[in-house]
Design a protein around this nucleic acid. Structure first.
Length: 280
DNA sequence: AGCGGGACCTGTGGGC
DNA sequence: TGCCCACAGGTCCCGC
């Protein structure tokens, strides 16, 4: 699941449940789930969540010291990877087989709230940090621009090198937040074959590509992301954008535009689907 | 530099 | 019904 639109949806849906809450305790059920590039989880205790947002596929909880002053005193980051889920006890849920961490929070009126991080495949990670720690984390430091914010003039020079354009789109250093679903869908809408090399793209094609990426991401966010199997938002609801796929998961089926048989191949070790007619 | 392959994990679906 | 294999939204690391 979780690519940019899903991370955005989770951030939006978890926010009303936890903003202004204070961390009272935590239970880390799988120690490898905590990213060692950050601080021990005790770092977040007694801090208050001031804001929930997203960068690339990362969900970020901004923290403030509970006592006044000391704004922006830390962050708690979640990367959902393939099967991570974030939800609260108010979403009709409780600890399960794949729960990796449980946070106990308290609203300003003292009401307790449980925040769960579940992850079947256990690839997902949690990281506690401050700005300094964050800026030293290679993944963060090298993260490319936000696809919905980057300008065409900033985008074009990033399309360097002979590697396939799809491989480039999956590289979080080139753009932050695109994964296998949105790479394939964006390339379809841009009319570009996935194996084309980055430096073979004309400026016009680069423009089509960025426009397609932004269109696909925005439409997916509007539909609360894509649920292939595991993904749910913070309230346990599925997204709907999987109903709008043109190529992802449709290898061997008919192109929805021209009727040709969609080709399924492997590129950079990832399943890749494209239309041999619509994509040049 | 960039590619392929493997590793990290668990579950599901298809074929036999 | 059951077993085995392939594959799954991501990222990192190794060797070539």
């Amino acid at each position: 699941m979780p690519e940019l639109p899903e991370a955005e949806t989770v951030a939006r849906t978890i926010s009303p449940h936890i903003v202004d809450c204070r961390f009272v305790s935590y239970e880390l059920l799988r120690k490898q789930t905590l990213n060692e590039a950050g601080y021990p989880l005790s770092f977040i205790l007694d801090k208050r969540i001031s804001k929930v947002h997203r960068r690339g596929k990362l969900i970020i909880l901004d923290l403030e010291q509970n006592s006044k002053g000391n704004s922006n005193s830390g962050m708690l980051l979640f990367h959902l990877r393939m099967t991570g889920r974030l939800f609260t006890s108010t979403a009709n849920s409780r600890q399960g087989k794949h729960t990796r961490c449980i946070f106990t929070l308290e609203k300003s009126d003292g009401t307790p709230v449980k925040l769960f991080f579940d992850d079947m495949r256990a690839f997902g990670q949690i990281m506690a940090c401050d700005q300094e720690k964050l800026s030293q984390w290679p993944f963060w430091r090298d993260l490319g621009p936000e696809p919905l914010e980057v300008s065409l003039s900033d985008f074009i020079p990033r399309l360097k090198g002979g590697r396939p354009v799809k491989t480039g789109l999956l590289d979080q250093k080139l753009l932050a937040g695109i994964g296998n679903i949105y790479a394939d869908e964006s390339l379809f809408h841009a009319g570009i074959k996935p194996e084309r090399s980055l430096d073979s793209l004309s400026e016009e094609e680069a423009g089509h590509l960025l426009a397609a990426i932004q269109k696909v991401l925005k439409e997916s966010i509007a539909q609360c992301g894509s649920s292939i199997r595991d993904y749910r938002d913070a309230n346990g609801n599925t997204g709907a954008f999987q109903n709008s796929f043109y190529v992802y998961g449709r290898g061997g089926k008919e192109c929805r535009l021209c009727g040709s048989t969609l080709i399924k191949s492997r590129l950079g070790g990832r399943a890749t689907v494209y239309c041999p007619v619509c994509q040049k």
